[in-house]
Computed example of a mutant assay.
Amino acid sequence: MGYAPGAYDLFHIGHLNILRHARSQCDYLVAGVVSDEMAELAKGRRPMIPLVERLEIVRSVKYVDAAFVETVPDKLETWKQVRFDVLFKGDDWRGTPKGDKLERDFASVGVEIVYFPYTVHTSSTQLRRALDLLTQEAEPSVSGERR
């Protein structure tokens, strides 16, 4: 069984690629969708799309067999509940302190970490920045003119 965790905020092609590649590497894929609170802890801000909607989107992707809400920061605690054999991440995690810790932690329980190419040209962070800029431009300034 494979596990592909993420916030899946502003669902885009990078998310779809991870789920597609993950499903091709396992017989059963569980997508872990982090709660709003967990996303805020990890990224310093809440997702733009609420958990219930992100969960429904991910659950509806044909590559996903089941979706699980992550409510704790420790992935080993999540593993104790889901019991997956392989954890899938974008390769932007490879060689980072967080990625190295993930590999060490899961080596202790026999879970393999598989990295997939990170979709550089599209990310939720980039989409959020673009939306923020559009919102700023649309807001009237103090003088009543658009920015």
Rank of each mutant, 00 (worst) to 15 (best):
V86H: 02
W93M: 06
I113Q: 06
A66I: 00
P73Y: 12
V114H: 12
K89E: 12
K62S: 14
Q81K: 15
S108G: 06
D91S: 06
A67Y: 04
F106K: 04
K80E: 05
E77W: 06
V114L: 13
F68D: 10
V86K: 11
V72I: 12
R83P: 02
V64C: 04
V61Q: 08
G95P: 13
E77M: 03
R59K: 15
E103Y: 00
V86Q: 08
G99S: 04
V111K: 01
Y63D: 03
F88K: 00
K62H: 08
F106Y: 08
D92Q: 07
V69G: 00
V111Q: 01
K98H: 13
D92P: 09
L102G: 10
Y63T: 06
S60M: 05
P97T: 10
T78V: 13
V109T: 09
E77L: 09
G95Q: 13
D85L: 08
E112G: 07
E70R: 04
K80A: 01
G95M: 14
Y63A: 11
V61M: 13
S108T: 14
R59G: 08
V114P: 08
D100H: 11
T78P: 01
V64T: 08
P97E: 12
F88G: 01
R59V: 08
F68N: 07
K89L: 04
V82Q: 08
F68M: 07
Q81T: 12
V109A: 07
V61K: 05
R104L: 14
K98T: 15
E70T: 04
F106G: 03
A66N: 06
P73M: 14
K98S: 15
V82E: 02
R83W: 00
L102H: 11
F106N: 07
R104C: 11
K101A: 14
P97L: 09
T71G: 11
L102T: 11
A66R: 14
V109C: 08
W93C: 02
E77C: 06
A107P: 11
P97A: 10
V64H: 02
V82A: 04
L76Q: 12
R83E: 00
V114S: 13
E77K: 12
V69S: 01
K62A: 08
R83N: 06
G90N: 09
P73E: 14
D105I: 09
K80S: 01
